[in-house]
Design a protein around this nucleic acid. Structure first.
Lengths: 182, 182
DNA sequence: TAGAGCATGTAAGGCGTTACATGATTTC
DNA sequence: GAAATCATGTAACGCCTTACATGCTCTA
């Protein structure tokens, strides 16, 4: 069974939180930073169909007051299981390096579905791979990267700084979670 | 004519700087942060073929001392024109939002091929779209985002802080370019 | 002579992007 | 009556990912 995409996990989460139609989900994407994860109907409608085929979502004709046809999607128990499994998986260096948006999704879903302690644990899991990446880039800059032209060095430093910022955010986020739960 | 991918631009640049075989390029990806842009032979070899079909690269059998077969790629004049056109294009909010790696590539290529002044100009072009995104996220947080749960707010703030860090980097990079050219 | 590294590919499958297509229903 | 918006899709295309396949050449 193939892994789900970020968009699919997000849809699962949104629909689990509140059953919705494809159109309503699209609007949510269009009016919030969630839009980062999707742009077009060409990605979201097929994604919903795939989730339905997997029995993670159920589709129901909406008996809405107005005569408009609408398909309401709701989450099956399998959906919650899938989300739980996803957010509880380990945080790898690869994911931190190549897919930070997935981390943000996992963090939010973790916090919303499983509460403060789970979210706190998730954040603490980030630290080690982030540090690894930072060390890896620093080592490169102090070694073979010595011969880089200025622009190349600056580009690598941009990466470095973005991970440092991420680390600082994770620390602060942990503190805010602690504060808010006391 | 379709736009090229980040990987294709990068290959164009590397080969322009120094003719190389696919294998040599792969090794470069494997041993430097350039690896971010490519992982597998399954992406780089086909990319080289596509560039050859477009007459941006030329392939030559290498008469190397050792008997090993090797295909040396070198850049055609069209390649340099393509790179010039790419790096001189405008920096859009969309690109900043969804494809920072493309910005880094453009910056390095710009600096290497067209020098200090071009790179300086490129950096100054970044400021406005970055500020727009920052304002957009701040506005969201101070408006509809008020009702977000803590984890959601923190996630949006992560995005915000990453763009602030990017902005700070751009400023510093500009200063370092100035210093180094005096 | 066995294995590691050199060197180049192909094949299947899948998702996202872009564009197109359709029709119903409010609203002006 | 026209236009905006509600609402849901399909089709082509292309790239990436993963896995597989092939053979040569140094080195131990």
């Amino acid at each position: 069974m193939r892994k789900l995409t970020n968009l699919e996990y997000l849809l699962l989460f949104l629909v689990h939180a509140r059953p919705a139609s494809g159109y309503a989900l699209r609007k949510q994407f269009a009016t919030t930073p969630l839009g980062y994860y999707s742009d077009s109907p060409g990605s979201i409608y097929p994604a919903l169909q795939r989730l339905k085929r997997r029995a993670l979502l159920r589709a129901a004709k909406d008996p809405s007051p107005t005569g408009r046809r609408k398909t309401l999607f709701s989450a099956t128990p399998k959906a919650l299981a899938e989300l739980r499994h996803w957010v509880h998986g380990p945080v790898t260096r690869e994911e931190v390096r190549y897919d930070p948006p997935a981390l943000m999704l996992r963090f939010v879903i973790c916090a919303q579905l499983f509460g403060y302690k789970a979210a706190r644990k998730f954040l603490s899991q980030l630290s080690s791979p982030v540090q690894e990446i930072i060390k890896e880039l620093e080592t490169y800059l102090n070694g073979p990267g010595k011969s880089l032209p200025l622009s190349g060095r600056l580009a690598v430093e941009q990466g470095l700084e973005s991970f440092r910022a991420f680390d600082a955010w994770a620390t602060r986020a942990g503190q805010e979670l602690d504060r808010s739960s006391s």
